[in-house]
């Protein structure tokens, strides 16, 4: 995979939360850099701080120690060049599909006509053409997540963040959506080319990503960083594929 210049880097980032029981260290000394055009998957057991890394990239959290550089600049606020797809969709129930997709564009001050056009384009790309005026509750889980994806894509982010995007869906739906995600990622009409995805499913990570960051838990730290050198489309029954699975398993355990 062609990798461009560095997009963002974590410099010895440690993250602590204050809980009633006291301080908890969620991430310890996370240090890595991501290149433009990479598809990175972060895998690890639950509680390893996978989602926290995404929230740090997005600027929803600020690191307790260390710093995060985005295109060489220290990041201090919400990163508007990033867009997140949430595990439980996080769609506003009182807005239609189109209004939900337009939300990020509205936040960026794009005028109504242009944002309607852009929203329509991405709604079409995720295969929801004709559902513009539907409300989230009228959609199935898979369709809701397509709206979530379209909403993130519509702002044309430099980095697409995905927080266990398929874990709330049934198996068949998530297979379909995974295939479509790869299509979208390689679609030249869509400018998004860097993806960071969090998952707890090792197979999903190997199937989709160029690079897998393996987190170990309590406190979360990077236990492994490996490139997946397999041609696409990837086959789970492939011998090399299962070798990767075994390697990641041994890193986590």
């Amino acid at each position: 995979m062609p990798n461009g210049p560095t997009l963002f880097q974590f410099e010895h980032v440690t993250q602590k939360f204050t809980l009633p029981q006291g301080d908890v260290t969620v991430l310890r000394d996370i240090h890595f850099e991501a290149k433009e055009g990479e598809f990175i998957a972060i895998v690890g057991p639950s509680g390893a701080g996978k989602s926290t890394i995404l929230r740090l990239i997005n600027g929803l959290l600020q690191p307790t120690e260390g710093r995060i550089l985005y295109k060489g600049q220290p990041q201090r606020d919400i990163n508007l060049e990033a867009a997140m797809v949430f595990q439980n969709f996080a769609l506003l129930p009182w807005l239609t599909v189109a209004q939900n997709v337009e939300l990020g564009l509205e936040a960026r001050g794009i005028e109504p006509h242009a944002r309607r056009k852009k929203a329509a384009f991405y709604i079409d790309k995720v295969g929801l053409d004709g559902y513009e005026e539907a409300y989230p509750r009228e959609l199935s889980g898979g369709m809701k997540q397509r709206v979530g994806l379209a909403r993130a894509l519509a702002v044309e982010p430099e980095v697409l963040l995905m927080d266990e995007p398929f874990s709330a869906l049934d198996a068949l739906t998530s297979i379909n959506l995974r295939d479509e995600l790869i299509d979208i990622w390689s679609d030249r009409d869509i400018p998004v080319n860097t993806v960071v995805m969090v998952t707890h499913m090792i197979e999903e990570a190997i199937e989709l990503a160029d690079r897998v960051l393996v987190l170990s838990s309590r406190p979360g730290h990077i236990a492994g960083d490996l490139r997946i050198e397999l041609p696409r489309p990837r086959d789970k029954r492939d011998k090399q594929f299962s070798e990767y699975v075994d390697r990641i398993f041994s890193l986590i355990a």
Partner: peptide, 8 residues
């Protein structure tokens, strides 16, 4: 969180 992430 979504509202914040979208930069509203």
């Amino acid at each position: 969180e979504a509202a914040r992430a979208l930069g509203l």
